[in-house]
Design a binder for these strands. Structure first.
Lengths: 205, 205, 205, 205
DNA sequence: CTCTAAACGAGACGGTACGTCCAGTCTTCGG
DNA sequence: CCGAAGACTGGACGTACCGTCTCGTTTAGAG
């Protein structure tokens, strides 16, 4: 044979993570980075370093920063989002928006923000819609349904535009003003947007 | 040495622009770049090159890319935005939203997008609000006032949230879906959001 | 999730090679890669792919790229190298150098080059010497011996330095100039280096 | 106007170096890196960091690692190379080779080595020749001329191949064996290569 | 008018992050 | 168990921009 061997020892972290375990670690690192430095300050290098992963392992899964951030945000918000039943559509709606607004202050807000800007100039503008849009409408529908079941007077046949109007107003407010959304803003959305659109009695004789 | 030689020759363009003339040239170059490559693809170097200006002349006026883009967008939209009186609040609203949506396809949309993302992580959130927010509410107020003057049944005492709801819905739709906004989306906003909120008769017995 | 799916399918090639057969296949793949892309362009992945072998199977045998390349070069040149007897030391020498120079144009040259650079910074300098050095001296000694047997006037007691001078001159010329070595260069080495050093009559009164 | 200004202070090293001063700093950093980690271990990042320069400032001047290293080696060896006149061609030659061999132990050897390997696979194989080849022949010619002036019997009309044979033998020995070259090797080159080729009396009756 | 200070164009500079490539190690499976 | 396959960590690559700085030139405005 012919071996003259430079030793070149190599002490890497063991055991090596793969597949789902690694994926989760990367997404968690992404969430942490988003919380610390925000979307604009997030770098692939920093995520890789925090996750103790190679950059290639990230790029193999998500081709862009936007895709990574969207996946992280999706994972983060997968848990329970349904607000408790307070017995009143008005209060239910406020509670829901308050919880959403609180989330927006953290990594979720940063993820949403980043997803918007990067997906706007991408080839796949519809990807973001899947992640972002349905949620607000679904929860709103649930709240309205609960109210109807309780016997509250609710408009029948609410459209997507009408159901998602409150959460959209909140999102846009956050996009433009940033930071924490005050209760007064949320109440304004509830009283002036959700109630007029959703409650039948507000249109009554 | 092996490579390189000093420049020496120097043929600069004359006469040199200053003050307002230079500023306008830079903003126009910014608009043009936004239209061509979008906000994410816009670089200060490219703007400077297109404007045949030094980068310092840009940074002297606007400290960041976001500031430059917002200034350019502001300048671009300074012109008339008030839609013609079609004799119907419904048609007026659609026409206005159609014009706005058309603008969003071009540099204005890119500017808005960029302003959102960069201002979110800045120390001065809220600055964007001044530029972006008032407009939609103002035009909506004008349309409603015209309708009232024509005798159309319009809700009195509409709030900011209610007046800006349609334009906000459009903006958010653009942010999330990108690209051209279809007429059907605009009509949905008009019929399901603007009319229910603004027209008194739609709440009638 | 948003992207990606696990591989699952797995069609391995059968039957599996082992031991000598596998080793030969790897070395042949190495030679082929050297010929195609040169030493600098050679990658372990490419060799493994071409040999349809796992990278581990390579690293198990040769710890570094340099070791692999040297082994491949050694195997490749194991065959007959002795030039035919032309009846003249001068012509024999030229023929031999010509053949050697021709080899240098192909994988052998690339292997030699790579071995030099990688072994220079290794812990085991001198290993390369075993592979590379003896050959030139041995063939030169053979040529001189044949000439002596034919009755040509040849200096007795030629040293290693003197015997390997022509082949060394050729190697260095190749290292520095690269590419194909012209006949004129080889003739210069023969006439101005080999003959003065080796032929007794050229030192005669 | 429209300025909302994030301060973004920036404390870089001042005054900034340019042109010749910067070039020298980079080459010195290259020499230092070569001495510390050798050619194979040298990275553009490390050179840039040590020189406190941007990588672009290096790439602007030298397109490849090989070009940088060659320039550094050239700069480093620009100083006096001519050995002192010892009164004997034999001793002069040894002294010269000893000095050359000593240099090869340091950054010059690494530079030569690296230049060889990277230029071999380049488009400009002739570039290296200019840097490397002339020197050995020139000094040898000078030594021989001095000997002739002293009255030593020297062969007239020595060719390039003959003049550069000793230094080439040394270079190749270094390439293959690496590390420090022993005096005995140098004396062998002097006695068995330089003297037989250069001294007329060694061919005399 | 001349003189001076500021603004300007051009682009080199130090620096950060990018997305890619490869070396060498580790894991997973099938035979 | 070994071999094929290939994912993994780590690190250098060469590029793109950022925002600053240096260099001469041009211009405006004061004396």
């Amino acid at each position: 044979m012919l071996v003259w061997c430079s030793p070149m020892t190599d002490h890497r972290s063991n055991p090596r993570r793969r597949g789902q375990e690694l994926e989760t670690a990367i997404l968690e690192a992404t969430i942490a980075e988003l919380a610390e430095v925000g979307y604009a300050g997030l770098t692939m290098d920093a995520v890789a370093a925090r996750a103790k992963a190679g950059k290639v392992s990230i790029y193999r899964r998500w081709p862009t920063k936007a895709a990574l951030v969207m996946a992280a945000g999706y994972q983060y918000t997968r848990g329970a989002q349904v607000p408790p039943d307070t017995g009143s559509l008005r209060q239910d709606t406020f509670t829901w928006l308050r919880g959403f607004a609180d989330q927006l202050e953290g990594p979720v807000g940063q993820a949403l923000l980043g997803a918007v800007v990067d997906s706007a100039n991408s080839e796949q503008p519809g990807e973001l819609a899947k992640l972002s849009e349905g949620r607000g409408r679904q929860v709103a529908e649930l709240l309205v349904q609960r109210a109807r079941n309780r016997g509250e007077p609710v408009v029948a046949g609410l459209t997507d535009v009408q159901l998602s109007a409150p959460s959209n107003a909140l999102k846009l407010y956050y996009f433009i003003h940033g930071g924490r959304v005050d209760d007064s803003v949320l109440w304004a959305i509830v009283e002036e947007l959700a109630m007029p659109l959703w409650r039948a009695e507000s249109r009554g004789c």
